[in-house]
Structures are given as structure tokens and as C-alpha cells.
Design a protein around this nucleic acid. Sequence first.
DNA 1: GATGAATGAGGATTCATTCAT
DNA 2: TATGAATGAATCCTCATTCAT
Lengths: 203, 203, 203, 203
Amino acid sequence: MNERSFIARLNIITTMNEKKTRILAATEKLLAEFGFHGLSMQMVAKEANVAAGTIYRYFNDKDDLLNQLHDHILSYIAAQISHGVVDTMPIKQRYRTMWLNLWHMTLNGDAPLIIRGQFQNLPCRSKQERKHLSQKLFSSVATMFNEGKACGLFKNIDNEVLSILSLETSCNLARRQINGGLQINDDELEAVINASWDAIILH
Amino acid sequence: MNERSFIARLNIITTMNEKKTRILAATEKLLAEFGFHGLSMQMVAKEANVAAGTIYRYFNDKDDLLNQLHDHILSYIAAQISHGVVDTMPIKQRYRTMWLNLWHMTLNGDAPLIIRGQFQNLPCRSKQERKHLSQKLFSSVATMFNEGKACGLFKNIDNEVLSILSLETSCNLARRQINGGLQINDDELEAVINASWDAIILH
Amino acid sequence: MNERSFIARLNIITTMNEKKTRILAATEKLLAEFGFHGLSMQMVAKEANVAAGTIYRYFNDKDDLLNQLHDHILSYIAAQISHGVVDTMPIKQRYRTMWLNLWHMTLNGDAPLIIRGQFQNLPCRSKQERKHLSQKLFSSVATMFNEGKACGLFKNIDNEVLSILSLETSCNLARRQINGGLQINDDELEAVINASWDAIILH
Amino acid sequence: MNERSFIARLNIITTMNEKKTRILAATEKLLAEFGFHGLSMQMVAKEANVAAGTIYRYFNDKDDLLNQLHDHILSYIAAQISHGVVDTMPIKQRYRTMWLNLWHMTLNGDAPLIIRGQFQNLPCRSKQERKHLSQKLFSSVATMFNEGKACGLFKNIDNEVLSILSLETSCNLARRQINGGLQINDDELEAVINASWDAIILH
DNA sequence: GATGAATGAGGATTCATTCAT
DNA sequence: TATGAATGAATCCTCATTCAT
């Protein structure tokens, strides 16, 4: 995903000041390129074409900037994961679509920071707060799991656990493919999707 | 796991200078507590009760310290994962044992850094080098997957993928339990182990 | 020469930021007092009444600071050496004027660093680059030597060698007078100027 | 000059502990190679094949080591400058011999530290003390100048000044040749020697 | 609101010196 | 006497944050 589309994404989701948007976009780009270690506020300012001090009109401090970025990316993932999914589709098809949405997002590096777990080490807000946000956003996933359990297709296990056992393997595999070695072709990909599906259905 | 036991662990695994051991132990502790962001060499020195300069007798620089720590922890996990596993046990039993070993290590915070993926952002040695080390260490896991595939029990999928689909869900769940909300009792735990097992066996 | 006049000098020669000027002035002063060995960036900052970080807005690093200082001083010497010299004056008179200009600059400590050869040990830019700069600046000296050779007054020797044999004895003597012992009165001074003149004229 | 010959030189000049000699030799070698900036006591210890602490049995501190090295090198130069000179030789021949001795020493880098003025920035002993040492050592030079003045050959100028005007141009030229550009062939060398001679004789 | 120069505490690393062995 | 591991102050440099314009 390029910077332009990121800005578009943010502006669709929320009404947001244009400079604030540029700052968030710059931050994500630099974070993906250099990691936390290599991210400085001056770099962000330069990349966003604003003065260093301007950042502090929109964000309390560096942590606040990173936290707000986190939330925006999470919103984006939540929106993207159900792209092409409608509640009238068969559950298996919905599952496959979401799995592949996550897979492609991860491979494309669309949301590298959250998906790669890069936000875990931040001096951050309470985990509770983050969890609530997360649950609110991923309603389409919850809907799918609930329906599946209701009709006796899925195991009767907590939704979050089901997600870890099935959908999130998508991220883990994609990440491993990016990091090294692992190569997965189309046939293998289908096999993996089905294997992860096996983990949550009743046999 | 407290610092004392970490030191014991390192000294069991290798013959190692006592001060070098203290430095590694201090680094792990601080990393778990503050993350990469908040780790300074001064802190490490203070925690290890050595002078700042002393660290540089045993490690070339900060990266070297972190890399050596990575390798030691990886060795530890590799050793612990097959604790109580013998090749004559039924495959399912071996799997369950390993799954629980990983589960408890993660919950205990024995190896928080690798398990939490905290080493992925390091300015590090080649991914190839790391992968080789990793493969060498986890032979008991590979043996299990190979046997399972040979006797028609497991799906014919690459070992690394099988691991992500099944064993590593253990870490992901445990981590989520630590981070917030999620509570899993003993019955649920068995259900989850079986669900992850379903992902890799043929049906 | 005191610090104030140094600042004035720099500002005359070039348009330059006032803080950058203060930093250069402080560096020269401290270098003359403590030598390279004893020069730290903190000292420079303190002497220049700026914060340590400010230095790095104007100079890439310590080497850059020292190199820029070198070039400024060289420009100053080049400007001063021909003070009071016009091309219509007899060659001997031009020579004497330049010799005394160098002598007084050295005695006054106007340009202690270059004159004392203190810049020779710098981890520096290419010698070629320095030589080119040097040649460009000292055109009035070159003109004098060339005219002198053309009219059969001077020995037919490379200009740089002529300079070492004659003009530069001025610096060496002045330096020795500063460092210790050697005292030279006005009569002796004239004798020395003439002696150095003898080295380059044909007899 | 290689290290072996330096050790030989030192041992000839004075009776000296063998380890102390090795330390001085190592210091000179490293100083010539890396300059003051790049010289550490651990390097010296390693190069001299002694422990770091051992240096402090023979020298009070780093400054003392450098000062003692200075004096030894000065002794060496004083000894070498009159190599091949006997008081019965004509003055001009003595002069030429000394001039060339200095020239070759400088070019060979035999005594790079003193000759290049590298010792001037040391936090050092009093200039007086150094001057006395210097005068004591260079008696053959003083003898030549005194004889020359007595027989009406040389100008009646202080010996130290005469030295700067004539002999020391040798070092300055050689240094310039090492540092860059300047190339001097044998014919030119003779011309330069004669030019420097012209500076001090009566015409 | 916006700027960007200035700040100075804090970072990793080096190295002269000491001292228990 | 000799060692060399250990020290910790000092080095250069970065960067989050502020504030006068």
C-alpha cells in the first residue's frame, strides 16, 4: 500500500485534519521502513512536510502518536478483513475470504506494525482499553463464529480462542514467509486454509 | 522464572563466565520488563552489578549482546520443549506434552522475548543464519512431524507450517492470556489442544 | 587577538550565522589553549554559550567542525599576509611586508592552529583538496615569486620551496619565540629578514 | 626504521630494562601509525606484549610515557644528525652532511613524532626543561655554527636562529614532500641545500 | 496555527588507571 | 614482579520536546 492510499483510507474512516493525516501516514511509512529504533520525530516531520513542533499540536507526545497510529491501523484491518464478505454467504466461504484478506494484508505489508506485533513493546495504554477497541471493530468475525457455533458447525470454544486457532494462523504464516525461507504456492495455500478450518469445526 | 534460575539454566547449558552470565540474565529481565525501547546499557550494567565497560569485555556491542541472548534463549526453549518426551511414546502424547511445555514456558515467562516475537525487529544477523540455528535445535519436533506424516496420521504439509498451525497456537494463546482478559480453565485447555491437533491430522 | 576580534574577522570575511561563528571562535580559542587532545564538544558548547546539540546543527561532526575552522583560518591568513602589499611596490618591499605580516600574526596568536602545524594530524579531507585551497588563496605570494624569477632576482626554484626557505622561517622563528627562550629585538629582526631573503635571491 | 632497530637504538643509548624498551618501541610505532588520537594504553600493551598494568611499573602515566619517548627520540636525532661528521671536515661539508641526515631521517619517518611537531600539544613538562635538553644534545651543530661565525663565514646571529633559517628547512621540505604534491629530485636537492646555506653565510 | 532553531538529558562506547591474584 | 579483568568517568552524538517568532 502506498502513502497516498493510506491517506485516503484515513480520511474515509474519520473526519480528520489534513496535517494530522499526513503525520500519521509518514509515521507508518517510516515505521515500516526503519522500525521503532530508527524512528525520530524529526524524520516524521520531514516526511510529513510539517515542522517538528507541529506534530505536538495534534499529538501529546511520541507515545500518543504511536497509539493513535495503532488504533487507525486496527480500524483499517477490521474494515479490510471483511472486504467482500456478506452475511448471506456460506460460512466456509466467509471464512476463506477473511483468511485470505488477512493473508494478503500481511504479505502486502498493509498493516505491518500491528500484524507483526511491533506495538507490543510500546509504553502503552491499558491492555483492557485495547481489547475493547479490538472487539468493537471485529464484529463480522464474531458474527461468523457465533453463527457457526449456533448451527453446530464449530466447536463450542470462546471466539477469541477460535480466532487464534484459525484465522490468525494466516498472519503467522504470512509473516514467516516474509521473514525468510518458507515459500507457499497456491495449492499449498488452499491446503493450509482447510487445515486451519479443521481446527475449529466439529468432526 | 526468577533471575537466579536463569543463571542456573545458562550455566547448565554451557560453561560460561559468571559475569557474562549475569549480564545476559540482567538483559533478559530488563527486556521483559521494559522492552527494547527502554533498554540501555547502563541499566544492564546496574542490574548485573558490573560496570558499564565490563559489558564490552564480553560482547562487541549492544547488538551482539542481544543476539547472544537470543541464541541462549532459543537453546533453552529447544531443550525445554521436549522435556518428558521420548520417541517411544505415542505421537498424540508427544504432541500434547510439547504443546503443554510451550504453554507453561510462555505463561511462566521463561522465555518471554523469543516467544513474544520481540526479537524480530532486531538489527540482526541474517535470517538464514537464524533459521539454521532454529532447525538444528528443534529436532524432536521435526521427528514427531515426520513420523506422523510417514504413518498417514498427519497432513502432508511442510513441518514449519504444521508447527505454526498447531504447536505455536500454544504460545499465542498463552500470550493472550497474559496480556489480558482471556481465561482458560483445564477443560478448555484440553479442548484447545485437541482443536489444534485437528488442524494437522487427516480426517 | 581576543575572541571578539575573531568573531568580527569571520563576519567580515563571510556572511555567517552568528551562532556558527561563536562556535568556530570558541573552538579556535580552546584549541590554542588545550590542543586537540584536550578539546571536547562539551567544552566548545560551553565556551560558545550554546547547547551541545546546537553544534550539530551547523557541523556534521567534530571533524567537520575542525575542517571548517581550518579553512576559515587559512582564508584569514591568506587575506592578512598581503595586507599593505600592492603589486607596484618593489619586490623586496613586498617580501618584507609579507614576512612581517606572518611574523606578527604568529606572535599575536591570530592563527595559532595552522601556523603551529596543529592541523596536520587531523583525520582529514584529502591532502590534495587542502593543497588546492591553499594555492588558490595565496596568489599574492605566488605573484611575487613569479615576478622575482622572471626578472632574474630569485633562484629558479619551485614556489613552494621558495616559500619554505624564506617566508615560512617567519612562522618558525615567531613560534620559537613564543614557546620559550628566544628573544629577538628590532635590529635582529631586520637581520633575520635579510638572511631569509639571501636564501632565495641569486648571488 | 623498523621496530627491531628502534629497540637496538634505545639499548645502545642507555642501559634500560628490556620491557621498558619494548613499551617505548611499541608506543613510537603506534604513534607513527595512528597518531595521538588513536593511541590507547591497551594498544601499547598488546603491541609490546606486556600486560596493561605493567606499563605503570615503568611510567607514571600516559603523559610520562610520551615525554620519555620524546626524550629518547630527541637523543636519537641528536646522535644521527652528526653521523659522518667530524670536526676536521670543512664547514660546508659538515653542514651538507647534517642537512642531508635530517632530510633522510624525516623522509624515512625515523623520528616522525618530534619532527612533525606532534609533541607540541602534549600536556607536557616545562618548555624550559625541554630547551635545556635540546641544547645539551645538539653540541655538534652548535660547534659548527660557532666556528663559522668565528672565521667570518656565517652571519653573526644567534645559533638557534641560524638553525631555523638553514638546517631546519630540511625537515620542513621533507615533511611537505611526504604530505603531498612536492617532488624534489637530486639536482633540486643540491640547489635547495645551497639556497639554505646562502641564508646564513655572509655575502 | 505553524515554524524550526535550540535545548540538554540520555544514548552507546572507549580507555586510562587500579588492584586482587 | 607481572598480570589483565574490572572500573566508571568522559567521549561524541541523537532526539523528544519547547518556545520565541
